[in-house]
Simulated scan of single mutants.
Amino acid sequence: MISVLIPTYRWNSFPLVEKIHHQISKAEIPFEIIVIDDASNDDSVTQNKQSINLSNTSFQILTENIGRSVIRNLLAEKARFSWLLFLDADVMTDDDNFIHNYIQAIQSTDFNVFVGGMYYKETYTKSSSLRWKFGKFREAVSMEERLNNPMRYLFSANFLIRKSIFKDIRFNEKLKGYGYEDFLFAKDLSNHGFSILHIDNPIYHLEIDSNKKFVDKTKQGIKNLAYLFHSKTYNIHEIKLVKTLKKYKGLIFLITPFSKLFEKLSLQFSLLFFFDLFRITYLYKMIKKLK
């Protein structure tokens, strides 16, 4: 019935696998758990190999890093069952009914895609507070807001989809690295007429990136966004960052020379105000660079 798919990279995913395995075994349904490591070279490989001791669970380590979109598509190709539950390796659930809640959603509705949501615990250090604040105030939104904007809040960290749908709508492998693969996937679902049902079944993130790592990931994501801006393949003008750029283009042109300063202030003070100024000016620079 359900294939649980977990991509991992330099992270001990075994506690998550063990917990999910316990819950799904109790549910007494056909299942498998597939974990694929994206060519890690640290101690997490040894830790994750413990997964093979669990029934119906496999672990594979790749010889080269293939990236976020490709590894998720690979996981889906290996899946045997009709429903695919994607979970990030660095998440956890407090709810003993996490798997049951998804099974209940499948059995009680006609939807093909379910998103459980996410939240952030009050656990972070000063050096990682920028990522925590962004997650807390930009990603961990209320159920009401998720229902009002179902496509916007599809995150690959925690969602369930019918395999027959995923076979036709996969993660876009043209995007390299971090950023906006979830958005494109949601857009493809919408373009094909599929709706997303958000349910109250959240996970929380265990790994909170340092400010430096988060800013570096953000740069990669904005490069992807600049690529999409020029490709004209997708209508990305509903993305808030793009809407802001179009609305205040003249002002953003004037403040773009201060982009490095905004980046520095983001790292130093962990304020979303400076982080937003950095993101919008960096996007302007990347769009100009690709012209």
Rank of each mutant, 00 (worst) to 15 (best):
T109F: 05
I106T: 02
D200Y: 10
I287K: 01
V70F: 03
F111C: 05
E238P: 00
L251A: 15
M143A: 10
Y234M: 06
A76Y: 02
R72L: 03
L277Y: 09
T63K: 13
A226V: 04
I52G: 00
N211S: 03
D96H: 04
F273T: 10
F274D: 03
D43I: 09
Q50M: 13
D88R: 00
D188A: 11
N172M: 08
A27V: 06
D209W: 04
D182E: 10
S164P: 00
T57H: 01
F171G: 01
D188F: 05
Y102R: 10
A186I: 05
N12Q: 12
Q47E: 14
T244K: 00
I66S: 06
R152A: 15
N41V: 03
T57E: 10
S127N: 13
I208R: 05
K223C: 04
Y9A: 07
I99L: 05
K26Q: 07
I103T: 06
R138M: 14
T233W: 09
G177N: 11
S266F: 03
G221K: 03
I239F: 07
F269N: 15
S55D: 11
R152N: 15
K212L: 13
H100Q: 13
L245S: 08
S3R: 02
G250T: 06
Q60W: 07
G117A: 14
I255V: 15
H230K: 12
V215A: 05
D88P: 03
T233M: 13
A76P: 04
E32P: 07
E139L: 12
K264C: 07
Y124E: 05
F214K: 10
P30V: 09
R80M: 10
K260I: 14
D216E: 15
Y153D: 09
